[in-house]
């Protein structure tokens, strides 16, 4: 029993990270119909910038409290990622807004390579130890189930950001402009919405979320390196499609579902297939579910109006 609870907990933690990254994919897709493949690498830049800041602070003011240090690191990493998000949109994607859909997609892959290579030049090829400022000492709320404060923080922060983003999109003026732009950006601009600003804003918010996700990811596993954004980026993209790309609630649901399926899949695949498959096939469950959802509900779990976008 405690193994099952532990696996659900593992799934919730990794699922929350996926969800947070998936939010960035889905917001940009919702507005532009563009899959920003460089999103995972913005996450990596966020984590490495935070690392650099922490190392600087440790040398500069050794006795600083961990919470303050983490806050400062985030306060540096978030604006850096926001600037990257803004620059990326301004220089690479805006020019291609009316181009055929393949062009911005390939540009996004190019941006991803560019960010990785630049990071490799700055931070090298080696793995770096990421200071685990939030405690990783396990606690036992239930006998045999272990959870660390950093894992609880991840679940909490993801939930808060999710609620904040929902409020932003549904209750504020800029949110209304975002929804209008998503519906039809030409008509929205005729109605007096500055669509360029709205799209830039979306990229900047997405990049800020990636920075937070990057720092949480690195804090949980204690490592960071230039290629760290690729796999979580790919999984989060899967989560966004699973939940219904373009839909905020869908990204959250997709992320958590993917995390749970992965964790339970790895834990129980051997029992379920009577020893025929083992944990080297742990990803198979996630993709079977993705396949089934796309066959029976092509727009994803909560998705809507994907096909009518040009």
């Amino acid at each position: 029993m405690e193994t099952l609870i532990q696996q659900i907990l593992n799934g919730l933690v990794i699922g929350s990270v996926y969800a947070l990254i998936a939010l960035g994919y889905t917001m940009v897709y919702g507005i532009l119909g563009l899959i920003n493949f460089a999103h995972g690498d913005v996450l990596m830049v966020g984590a490495l910038t935070a690392l650099q800041t922490m190392l600087f602070l440790m040398g500069f003011a050794p006795g600083m409290s961990p919470v303050v240090m983490l806050t400062i690191a985030l306060a540096v990493a978030i604006p850096v990622c926001m600037m990257i998000g803004f620059t990326m949109e301004r220089l690479a994607y805006r020019r291609l807004r009316n181009a055929p859909r393949l062009a911005p997609l390939i540009t996004a892959i190019g941006m991803s390579f560019l960010l990785q290579t630049v990071a490799m030049i700055i931070w090298g090829r080696n793995y770096h130890t990421f200071p685990q400022l939030i405690s990783t000492t396990p606690m036992q709320p239930i006998e045999g189930v272990f959870v660390t404060p950093v894992q609880l923080t991840i679940i909490g922060v993801s939930a808060l950001i999710m609620i904040g983003l929902m409020l932003l999109v549904n209750k504020t003026r800029i949110g209304r402009a975002m929804r209008a732009t998503a519906e039809n950006h030409r008509v929205a601009s005729l109605m007096g919405v500055d669509t360029n600003a709205v799209i830039a804003f979306t990229f900047v918010i997405g990049a800020a979320l990636a920075a937070v996700a990057g720092v949480m990811f690195a804090s949980n596993y204690g490592i960071a390196h230039y290629g760290m954004g690729f796999m979580p980026g790919l999984k989060a993209f899967t989560a966004a499609v699973l939940g219904g790309i373009g839909n905020l609630g869908g990204a959250m649901l997709g992320g958590i579902t993917l995390g749970l399926v992965e964790s339970l899949g790895a834990g129980y695949i051997e029992h379920l297939t009577f020893g025929f498959l083992n944990s080297s096939y742990q990803d198979i469950f996630a993709f079977i579910i993705l396949g089934l959802v796309l066959i029976f509900k092509p727009t994803g779990l909560l998705g809507e109006r994907v096909s009518d976008r040009a």
């Binding site: 193994t3 532990q6 696996q7 593992n10 799934g11 933690v13 990794i14 596993y221 490592i223 290629g227 760290m228 690729f230 796999m231 992965e262 964790s263 339970l264 899949g265 790895a266 834990g267 083992n278 944990s279 080297s280 742990q282």
Partner: peptide, 21 residues
């Protein structure tokens, strides 16, 4: 227990939980 991961993975919680059992 005989479990598997890959050379790019960072999360081993699921297989380690199974091993713990």
């Amino acid at each position: 227990a005989r479990e598997f991961t890959n050379d790019k993975a960072t999360d081993f919680n699921a297989i380690l939980t199974k091993i713990r059992a």
